[in-house]
Design a protein around this nucleic acid. Structure first.
Lengths: 102, 102
DNA sequence: TCAATATATGCCTTTACAGTTATATGCTGC
DNA sequence: GCAGCATATAACTGTAAAGGCATATATTGA
């Protein structure tokens, strides 16, 4: 299966995800947002579905896609230990600045 | 240029990054950690360098690689608005549980 | 049942890129 | 300067996957 990292590497997949942040969207709307052919977008939506990042609901002929943010948590978890690194740098900078003020 | 997302999509690039979290590492050490040929690893290290995610220092014949975590911040920033989504879910769950306790 | 709309799938082509081997480059101690 | 180690680069190959077009499938309203 595709990792969450790989999922978001492709802009064609990242765009819909960003779009879905605001709520449910039909395929047609996502196609407009991405600016590629409908089949291309449908294909990527399928990948997102299969990776558990999105799910679908039927609404007449439309398929409404909804974001499933849980998997994004993996990314957040992975990032966690690194966060300390840049926060440390910011702290050091702030300390330097406050020293300069004295 | 490669986006930070694409950078981390490849395990062969993610592994060294994780390895570098602990501090400077020579290419040889990274090669062992990743388990691929030396040229393969060197190639990916170059990508990391050019993307500003790592930098090098010469130490005799060795090249010591160091992590430059700033670019990871982009990832963190991108993630920010989504974070609210899963936190909302957790809150809802907790509320449900506390209601059940009554 | 038929036409129209919305989406998915199959097939094909092309491109990007990872990995390998062989080789070049750079540095050091002698 | 030379031998030896550590790393980088070049050239090549194989593969995966993205995107396009054509077409199938599904749903609805009439």
């Amino acid at each position: 299966m595709v990792t969450t990292f790989a999922l978001l590497a492709d802009p064609t997949r990242r765009r819909p995800v960003e779009e879905l942040r605001a709520g449910e969207r039909s395929v047609g709307v996502l196609v407009d947002a991405v600016g590629l052919s409908q089949p291309a977008v449908s294909k990527q939506l399928r990948v997102l579905r299969e990776a558990g990042l999105a799910s679908v609901r039927k609404d007449a002929q439309r398929r409404m896609y909804r974001l499933d943010p849980e998997r994004l948590r993996e990314l957040d978890d992975w990032l966690q230990p690194f966060r300390a690194m840049w926060e440390a740098r910011v702290d050091a900078l702030e300390q330097t600045l406050s020293t300069m003020e004295d």
